[in-house]
Structures are given as C-alpha cells and as structure tokens.
Simulated scan of single mutants.
Amino acid sequence: MSADFQALYITVKLALVTTVLLLLVSPPIAWWLAHSKNRYRTIAEALVALPLVLPPTVLGFYLLLAFSPQYFPGALWQDISGQSLAFSFTGLVIGSMIYSLPFVVQPLQSGFATLGVKELEAGATMGMSRLQRFRYIVVPMTKRSFMLAATLGFAHTMGEFGVVLMIGGNIPGETQVISIALFEHVEALEYQQAHIMAGGLMVFSMVLLLFIYGYLNRSQGKHQQTRFW
C-alpha cells in the first residue's frame, strides 16, 4: 500500500471512529444545553463552541502538552497502556473529538430545542423510561439533526490539519492523514499528486454536501406536505 493510500485509510478510519464516538457522547450534552436552566449553561455552550474560533494550532499545542508524560492525562495513559498518548492514533481520536465536538453538538442541540413535549409526556404516561423515550421518540423525531451532525462531524474530521499535525506529527502509516500528505506533496513540488488528492477531497466534500442537503430538503418537503394535508 502506497503512503498516500495509507494516509487516506487512516483519515477515513479516524473520521469514522471520531464520528461514532461523538454520536454517543454528544446527545446528552446537546440535550442538557437545549433544556437546562442552569446558570452555567452559557459557559458550557462557550466551551463546546470554543474550537470554532480557536486556531487549531493553539488547541493542538495544549492537547500536545496534556498528552505528554509530564502532565496528568498523558502520564495516566502511559501508566495504564504503557504507550505514549501523543503521536498515536488514540491521541488523534481524542483530539479530533474535541475539535469536531461543536459540529455534532450544535445540530443536535437545535433539533432538541425545537422538539415538542406532548409526545414525551405521552410516552411518560405509558410507562416508558427516559432511555426508551429518547430511543423511540426523540431519535426518530430528530433524525434529520442526527444525520446533519454525523455528516458535519465526519467531513470536518476528514479535513483536519493543524490539530492532528500538532498532536500526531507526521508518521506514515500511523498518524499521517490525507491533509498532511497533501501538504508534503506541495512542499516537494509534486503538484500532480497534490492535484489528485486535493481534487479528490473537493469532489468527496461536494458529493457529501449534496447528499445531506438533498436529504434534508426532501425530509422538510415531506414534513410540510404532511402538515398541509
């Protein structure tokens, strides 16, 4: 397998793992942000949205320090696993989850905020637990938000550069992702390979966006038609 295909494989693997984990972690956060009256909610929202405005290299720098054996998270991980958290695929996953968190939480938060309470109250009167109400009522009614959150999280992770470079370095076959491989080709003046990789990413991104917006528009049209009739 060539270095470019290895970089593509690692990128897709990283995006898939990150998206799946975020879809497990983000719904409770989004639900709390959408319905909590806690006075600290604004601070929590700001922390979740921080990666949107923070330069990726700044976030990557502090994550690199946290992942190093000189600080508690990195030292604890090394004691448990015997391996360094920095410059590892696990470190890339954790960094990607933090960096892509707002792209998953915010669509879910918007969907949960507009959700009616009548269906949830009806489920409660039928004896459904909170988990059952979330699974059988909330998720089906906000599936468009889940679809958008998954797509944005996956696409955003696919295009990461600054964060993954800081915490993962550029180790071929281990932490080298497609954006870093593209940068290497440009630095080496290998423009043909760079064109192939950049063009492929552009086509992939466009197809992904066309799919998600087409799906959202169809779902919205069906919903409006149902309400009309």
Results as ranks from 00 to 15, higher is better:
S2N: 15
F5V: 10
F5S: 14
F5M: 15
A7H: 11
T11V: 06
A15I: 08
V17D: 08
L21H: 09
L24S: 08
P27V: 07
P28H: 08
A44E: 02
A49R: 10
V53T: 11
L54A: 13
L54I: 10
T57S: 11
G60V: 07
G60L: 01
Y62I: 04
L64K: 09
Y71A: 03
D79H: 11
D79C: 00
S84C: 00
L85G: 02
L92R: 05
S96Q: 11
P102C: 11
G111P: 09
F112Y: 13
E119W: 10
A122V: 14
G123D: 08
T125R: 09
T125N: 12
M126W: 06
I137Y: 02
I137S: 03
V138Q: 01
V139W: 03
P140Q: 09
M141Y: 01
K143N: 05
R144K: 12
S145Y: 02
A149L: 00
A155V: 08
A155N: 08
T157Y: 05
S179P: 04
F183A: 13
V186C: 06
E187F: 02
Q192Y: 06
M202G: 03
M206Q: 06
L208N: 06
L209E: 03
Y213K: 03
Y213W: 00
L216K: 07
L216W: 01
K222Y: 02
Q224S: 04
W229C: 03
